[in-house]
Amino acid sequence: MSRVIVVTSGKGGVGKTTTSASISAGLALKGFKVAVIDFDVGLRNLDLIMGCERRVVYDFVNVVQGEASLNQALIRDKRIKNLYILAASQTRDKDALTLEGVGKVIDDLKTDGFDFIICDSPAGIEKGAQLALYFADEAIVVTNPEVSSVRDSDRILGILQAKSKRAESGDEGIVEHLVLTRYNPKRVETGEMLSVEDVVDLLNIPLLGVIPESEQVLNASNSGEPVILDSESDAAQAYIDVVDRFLGEEKAHRFLTAEKKGLFKKLFGK
């Protein structure tokens, strides 16, 4: 059974594409067959972060419009087996995607035996974002620890509950997960940022993980590699935890405090 997952946020620039890339890569590394789709038409980004921008011949819009087959447009990741990318068009406008067209692509991916279909949503709560979430079974809501981001996530959660296919058909609702990114415990302690408790308290959905603010994210995206592959970095570790929890494993949350613990402190600090 395929699972369709939308990565969404409302607010822009919070880390949806970073999260989509790392979770897709993480799931594929576990042996699942994964397709990740860039819904951000006009602003393609995912292919850069995945390092396949030079291999885009056909894109998502071409497939939706019937100008290319799905197989022609799916880009196979060079590093990770079973990972495929469907890039967004840079030249088309947003209206090039239609509900029926997107639905057909997702159905075809299901038929092709993909275990996970990850939809990287554009920012906002309008048509583009609604299209990306419409067919989802699950949603990963990406939030930064600041009031405006949390407020927008709250909005998108309302839309998930009202305007998805699952909501319309009266099926069980979309399963919701929270990923809190760019978390900077120091700035939380000084009160500049909301704490993980504040955010979970307001949004009231299960927390999949907290990704610390990390320079490695930028380095990774500049070198066209999902940060999860940079396995030494905090951000990668945090994304690895996210993937494990997503697959049902129980793991304690990490990277919540500012303290840099040495081994000595870890052993005797409590």
Binding site: R151, D152, L157, G158
Partner: peptide
């Protein structure tokens, strides 16, 4: 049965309303 989220509006015409969750900012 849930929270009312930002941007949502609940209207109970001629009756009471019971919100089992919270009424979030912007709701």
């Amino acid at each position: 049965k849930s929270s009312v989220r930002s941007g949502q509006q609940v209207v109970a015409k001629d009756r009471d309303v019971i919100i089992m969750g919270s009424i979030n900012p912007g709701a």
